[in-house]
Design a protein around this nucleic acid. Structure first.
Lengths: 123, 123
DNA sequence: GTAGTTGCAAAGCTTTTGCCCCCTT
DNA sequence: AAGGGGGCAAAAGCTTTGCAACTAC
């Protein structure tokens, strides 16, 4: 466990948003500027493989990350502001399992994003 | 409307799977080998912007495409074989709208993928 | 001391673009 | 004839990697 990994771990843990690698790198650099972006990539990959963080991708071409939460949730993307809202919906998950089963599969994971506009903008 | 675009359009239309750009390029080349991959990219982008096709992305690093269907559907990914199964579930969509509304949003689009293993493999 | 980690820069992959030529209309 | 479209190769954007130096234990 090196200093660099500690810093990256701390940044990821402290981030309440869903930062991309560049953002993690910037935040880590503020704490300790001897860190390189290659190390950030390597460390993030390591954490991802260890199931400590999860990769998200909202179609922007850059991967974003969050710590794997206690409680699973999905994401609602505010298309106007880019804000990400987390939500949980047990009913949806129940139906997902049912769909998988109907096709002869066991549900192992899923990915759900809702792309939305604020009520007032919608029209 | 040039020959190249006609060929790409035909390939996309004939493809029952969800080909990536490289695959579309290969299939197009079999029909007419004077096509370049740059043109395939350009044409696919054009069709995407014209809402003729839709971009999919199953986390493999390459975008995949399908014609926009009459009836909306989502995708179940067989993690063992890579096969993609299309499904439709009205109930899930109803709950999605409800979730959006609860947060003060209007649902504009969504993305749902189920990652599954065949029943027999699961354990 | 040794195995594992970092920095740097180069390379990899997918996708986009500049430029000039060509085809379509 | 004019203008959009295509081919090629170079460039861009994100991510990974080779290698030598360095660190943690």
């Amino acid at each position: 466990m090196t200093e660099q990994r500690r810093v990256v771990a701390r940044v990821l843990s402290d981030s309440k948003d869903h930062p991309d690698v560049e953002t993690v790198y910037q935040r880590a650099s503020e704490i300790d500027d001897r860190i390189s972006i290659a190390t950030v990539y390597r460390t993030i990959r390591l954490f991802e493989e260890a199931s400590i963080i999860e990769r998200l991708d909202f179609g922007t071409g850059r991967a974003r990350y969050e710590e794997i939460p206690e409680k699973h949730h999905d994401h609602l993307v505010d298309m106007r502001s880019g804000k990400i809202i987390e939500f949980e919906c047990k009913d949806i998950e129940t139906y997902q399992k049912a769909v998988a089963k109907k096709h002869g599969y066991e549900l192992v994971g899923h990915r759900l994003e809702l792309y939305c506009l604020p009520m007032d903008d919608a029209k």
